[in-house]
């Protein structure tokens, strides 16, 4: 099992219930839509969130400091400089 962290619209929070760490990236994105719609993420409840809200988001999978599995769903970050 893994802790899922979702970053959306400038907010970032952990989902309180662990998810299967073998979930595919597509499954993680689908879960995230349902979690945000249902208000399962503290400070981030969007009832009418679009089905494709996380389609272009990145899924990172790391081990946390105590060895626990963590999954981060986050926006792409291609930038470092202004043009």
């Amino acid at each position: 099992m893994a802790i899922l962290n979702i970053t959306y619209n400038g907010m970032s929070a952990d989902y309180g219930r662990p998810i299967d760490d073998r979930s595919s990236d597509a499954d993680v994105r689908r879960y995230a839509v349902e979690i945000v719609r249902s208000g399962g993420l503290r400070g981030l409840c969007i009832a009418n969130l679009a089905n494709d809200a996380f389609d272009y988001y990145v899924v990172d999978r790391f081990d946390g400091p105590q060895g626990q599995k963590r999954i981060y769903l986050r926006p792409k970050v291609p930038f470092g400089a202004d043009r």
Binding site: T7, N9, G10, S12, R74, P75, K76, V77, P78, F79, G80
Partner: peptide, 13 residues
């Protein structure tokens, strides 16, 4: 070490 920013300025790493 890398630093990176989302296009909409809402998030960075």
């Amino acid at each position: 070490v890398h630093a990176a920013l989302a296009a909409d300025g809402s998030f960075g790493l």
